[in-house]
Protein backbone atom coordinates (compact mmCIF):
# COMPACT_ATOMS: atom_id res chain seq x y z
CA UNK A 1 0.00 0.00 0.00
CA UNK A 2 2.76 2.39 1.00
CA UNK A 3 4.55 1.56 -2.21
CA UNK A 4 1.47 2.31 -4.30
CA UNK A 5 1.00 5.71 -2.65
CA UNK A 6 4.62 6.63 -3.20
CA UNK A 7 4.33 5.51 -6.84
CA UNK A 8 1.18 7.63 -7.20
CA UNK A 9 2.78 10.81 -5.83
CA UNK A 10 5.99 10.30 -7.80
CA UNK A 11 4.13 9.85 -11.06
CA UNK A 12 2.27 13.12 -10.54
CA UNK A 13 5.28 15.26 -9.73
CA UNK A 14 8.73 13.77 -10.26
CA UNK A 15 7.87 11.53 -13.23
CA UNK A 16 5.30 13.87 -14.76
CA UNK A 17 4.38 12.65 -18.25
CA UNK A 18 4.68 16.09 -19.81
CA UNK A 19 7.55 17.72 -17.98
CA UNK A 20 9.86 14.75 -17.52
CA UNK A 21 9.10 12.63 -20.61
CA UNK A 22 7.31 14.96 -23.07
CA UNK A 23 4.57 12.42 -23.64
CA UNK A 24 1.32 13.60 -25.19
CA UNK A 25 2.84 16.85 -26.40
CA UNK A 26 0.86 17.16 -29.64
CA UNK A 27 -2.59 17.39 -28.14
CA UNK A 28 -1.12 19.14 -25.10
CA UNK A 29 0.02 22.05 -27.25
CA UNK A 30 -2.96 22.08 -29.58
CA UNK A 31 -5.86 21.85 -27.11
CA UNK A 32 -4.53 24.07 -24.32
CA UNK A 33 -6.13 27.29 -25.55
CA UNK A 34 -8.95 27.43 -22.98
CA UNK A 35 -9.13 25.97 -19.48
CA UNK A 36 -12.52 24.32 -20.02
CA UNK A 37 -11.62 22.29 -23.10
CA UNK A 38 -8.27 21.31 -21.71
CA UNK A 39 -9.83 20.11 -18.47
CA UNK A 40 -12.20 17.94 -20.54
CA UNK A 41 -9.31 16.43 -22.48
CA UNK A 42 -7.36 15.93 -19.26
CA UNK A 43 -10.23 13.96 -17.74
CA UNK A 44 -10.59 11.87 -20.91
CA UNK A 45 -6.87 11.06 -20.95
CA UNK A 46 -6.90 10.15 -17.25
CA UNK A 47 -9.89 7.89 -17.78
CA UNK A 48 -8.37 6.11 -20.78
CA UNK A 49 -5.08 5.65 -18.94
CA UNK A 50 -6.89 4.26 -15.92
CA UNK A 51 -8.50 1.53 -18.03
CA UNK A 52 -5.81 0.71 -20.58
CA UNK A 53 -2.82 0.55 -18.27
CA UNK A 54 -4.14 -2.15 -15.90
CA UNK A 55 -5.58 -4.11 -18.86
CA UNK A 56 -2.22 -4.00 -20.60
CA UNK A 57 -0.53 -4.95 -17.33
CA UNK A 58 -2.67 -8.06 -17.04
CA UNK A 59 -2.04 -8.94 -20.69
CA UNK A 60 1.69 -8.50 -20.27
CA UNK A 61 1.94 -10.55 -17.07
CA UNK A 62 -0.56 -13.32 -17.74
CA UNK A 63 -0.54 -13.66 -21.53
CA UNK A 64 2.60 -12.30 -23.17
CA UNK A 65 5.21 -13.26 -20.57
CA UNK A 66 4.20 -16.91 -20.01
CA UNK A 67 3.86 -17.50 -23.75
CA UNK A 68 7.08 -15.69 -24.64
CA UNK A 69 5.30 -13.38 -27.04
CA UNK A 70 6.92 -10.18 -25.78
CA UNK A 71 7.57 -8.94 -29.30
CA UNK A 72 3.83 -8.71 -29.96
CA UNK A 73 3.35 -6.21 -27.15
CA UNK A 74 3.27 -3.11 -29.40
CA UNK A 75 0.46 -4.43 -31.56
CA UNK A 76 -1.53 -5.78 -28.63
CA UNK A 77 -1.21 -2.61 -26.55
CA UNK A 78 -2.22 -0.32 -29.38
CA UNK A 79 -5.22 -2.51 -30.22
CA UNK A 80 -6.45 -2.35 -26.61
CA UNK A 81 -5.95 1.40 -26.54
CA UNK A 82 -7.71 1.98 -29.86
CA UNK A 83 -10.70 -0.10 -28.79
CA UNK A 84 -11.10 1.69 -25.46
CA UNK A 85 -10.75 5.11 -27.05
CA UNK A 86 -13.52 4.21 -29.48
CA UNK A 87 -15.68 3.37 -26.47
CA UNK A 88 -14.91 6.64 -24.68
CA UNK A 89 -15.65 8.55 -27.87
CA UNK A 90 -19.08 6.97 -28.10
CA UNK A 91 -19.83 7.73 -24.43
CA UNK A 92 -18.76 11.37 -24.67
CA UNK A 93 -20.72 11.87 -27.89
CA UNK A 94 -23.86 10.57 -26.20
CA UNK A 95 -23.64 12.34 -22.84
CA UNK A 96 -21.77 15.56 -23.56
CA UNK A 97 -22.14 16.72 -27.17
CA UNK A 98 -20.68 20.16 -26.39
CA UNK A 99 -17.48 18.63 -25.04
CA UNK A 100 -17.46 16.30 -28.03
CA UNK A 101 -17.67 19.26 -30.41
CA UNK A 102 -14.97 21.27 -28.66
CA UNK A 103 -12.50 18.37 -28.48
CA UNK A 104 -13.08 17.70 -32.16
CA UNK A 105 -10.43 15.63 -33.86
CA UNK A 106 -8.43 15.31 -30.65
CA UNK A 107 -10.82 12.83 -29.10
CA UNK A 108 -10.14 9.99 -31.55
CA UNK A 109 -6.52 11.10 -31.47
CA UNK A 110 -6.28 10.12 -27.78
CA UNK A 111 -5.63 6.69 -29.29
CA UNK A 112 -2.36 8.02 -30.63
CA UNK A 113 -1.68 10.21 -27.61
CA UNK A 114 1.86 9.28 -26.62
CA UNK A 115 0.98 9.57 -22.92
CA UNK A 116 -1.35 6.56 -23.14
CA UNK A 117 0.98 4.31 -25.10
CA UNK A 118 3.95 5.67 -23.15
CA UNK A 119 2.26 4.76 -19.87
CA UNK A 120 1.86 1.16 -21.03
CA UNK A 121 5.44 0.94 -22.32
CA UNK A 122 6.88 2.39 -19.11
CA UNK A 123 4.76 -0.10 -17.17
CA UNK A 124 6.28 -2.89 -19.29
CA UNK A 125 9.78 -1.72 -18.31
CA UNK A 126 8.89 -1.22 -14.66
CA UNK A 127 7.61 -4.79 -14.24
CA UNK A 128 11.18 -5.94 -14.72
CA UNK A 129 12.52 -3.73 -11.93
CA UNK A 130 13.42 -5.01 -8.49
CA UNK A 131 10.25 -4.80 -6.29
CA UNK A 132 12.17 -2.73 -3.73
CA UNK A 133 12.74 0.02 -6.30
CA UNK A 134 10.39 2.99 -5.84
CA UNK A 135 9.54 2.90 -9.55
CA UNK A 136 8.67 -0.80 -9.72
CA UNK A 137 5.17 -1.96 -10.59
CA UNK A 138 4.66 -5.20 -8.72
CA UNK A 139 0.91 -5.78 -8.86
CA UNK A 140 -2.38 -4.66 -10.27
CA UNK A 141 -2.78 -2.11 -7.44
CA UNK A 142 0.52 -0.49 -8.41
CA UNK A 143 -0.60 -0.40 -12.03
CA UNK A 144 -3.76 1.47 -11.02
CA UNK A 145 -1.79 3.89 -8.83
CA UNK A 146 0.66 4.58 -11.64
CA UNK A 147 -2.11 5.11 -14.19
CA UNK A 148 -4.07 7.45 -11.92
CA UNK A 149 -0.95 9.42 -10.96
CA UNK A 150 0.18 9.82 -14.55
CA UNK A 151 -3.29 10.87 -15.62
CA UNK A 152 -3.62 13.46 -12.86
CA UNK A 153 -0.13 14.75 -13.65
CA UNK A 154 -1.10 15.19 -17.29
CA UNK A 155 -4.42 16.82 -16.33
CA UNK A 156 -2.67 19.26 -14.02
CA UNK A 157 -0.06 20.14 -16.62
CA UNK A 158 -2.58 20.89 -19.37
CA UNK A 159 -4.85 22.94 -17.11
CA UNK A 160 -1.89 24.98 -15.83
CA UNK A 161 -0.71 25.69 -19.37
CA UNK A 162 -4.21 26.64 -20.49
CA UNK A 163 -4.49 29.07 -17.57
CA UNK A 164 -1.18 30.69 -18.49
CA UNK A 165 -2.11 30.90 -22.16
CA UNK A 166 -5.41 32.59 -21.36
CA UNK A 167 -3.55 35.27 -19.44
CA UNK A 168 -0.92 35.57 -22.14
CA UNK A 169 -3.49 36.67 -24.72
CA UNK A 170 -2.95 40.26 -23.57
CA UNK A 171 0.85 40.18 -23.65
CA UNK A 172 2.94 41.82 -26.31
CA UNK A 173 4.82 38.87 -27.79
CA UNK A 174 7.16 39.37 -30.80
CA UNK A 175 5.27 38.53 -33.98
CA UNK A 176 7.17 35.42 -35.20
CA UNK A 177 7.14 34.01 -31.68
CA UNK A 178 3.38 34.29 -31.23
CA UNK A 179 1.32 31.17 -30.81
CA UNK A 180 3.42 28.05 -30.96
CA UNK A 181 6.86 29.54 -30.27
CA UNK A 182 5.99 31.24 -27.01
CA UNK A 183 3.99 28.20 -25.91
CA UNK A 184 7.08 26.04 -26.24
CA UNK A 185 9.13 28.45 -24.18
CA UNK A 186 6.37 28.65 -21.55
CA UNK A 187 6.29 24.86 -21.27
CA UNK A 188 10.09 24.89 -21.00
CA UNK A 189 9.92 27.28 -18.07
CA UNK A 190 7.16 25.21 -16.44
CA UNK A 191 9.29 22.08 -16.89
CA UNK A 192 12.15 23.86 -15.18
CA UNK A 193 9.90 24.66 -12.24
CA UNK A 194 8.80 21.02 -12.07
CA UNK A 195 12.41 19.88 -11.97
CA UNK A 196 12.55 20.89 -8.32
CA UNK A 197 10.30 17.88 -7.60
CA UNK A 198 12.81 15.46 -9.07
CA UNK A 199 14.76 15.29 -5.83
CA UNK A 200 11.58 14.34 -4.01
CA UNK A 201 12.07 11.24 -1.87
CA UNK A 202 8.90 9.57 -0.74
Amino acid sequence: MEHAISLFVRSIFADNMIFAFFLGMCSYLAVSKTVKTSAGLGVAVTFVLLITLPVNYLLQVYVLNPLGLGYLSFILFIAVIAAIVQLVEMIVEKYSPSLYASLGIFLPLIAVNCAIMGGSLFMQQRILLDPENVKAIAGIGDAFAYALGSGIGWFMAIVCLAGIREKMEYNDVPKPLQGLGITFITVGLMAMAFMCFSGLNI
Binding site: F19, A20, P176, G181, G188, L189, A191, M195
Partner: peptide, 22 residues
Amino acid sequence: MMPAMALILVGCIIWAHRSLNK
Protein backbone atom coordinates in the same frame (compact mmCIF):
# COMPACT_ATOMS: atom_id res chain seq x y z
CA MET B 1 20.98 18.21 -20.51
CA MET B 2 17.68 18.98 -18.80
CA PRO B 3 14.38 18.23 -20.56
CA ALA B 4 13.33 21.87 -20.22
CA MET B 5 16.05 23.12 -22.54
CA ALA B 6 14.83 20.95 -25.41
CA LEU B 7 11.51 22.78 -25.29
CA ILE B 8 13.14 26.17 -25.20
CA LEU B 9 15.47 25.25 -28.10
CA VAL B 10 12.55 24.10 -30.23
CA GLY B 11 10.76 27.33 -29.33
CA CYS B 12 13.78 29.28 -30.59
CA ILE B 13 13.92 27.20 -33.80
CA ILE B 14 10.26 28.00 -34.43
CA TRP B 15 11.00 31.67 -33.82
CA ALA B 16 13.87 31.68 -36.30
CA HIS B 17 11.91 29.65 -38.84
CA ARG B 18 8.91 31.96 -38.72
CA SER B 19 11.03 35.10 -38.99
CA LEU B 20 12.77 33.68 -42.07
CA ASN B 21 9.56 32.52 -43.78
CA LYS B 22 7.52 35.57 -42.92
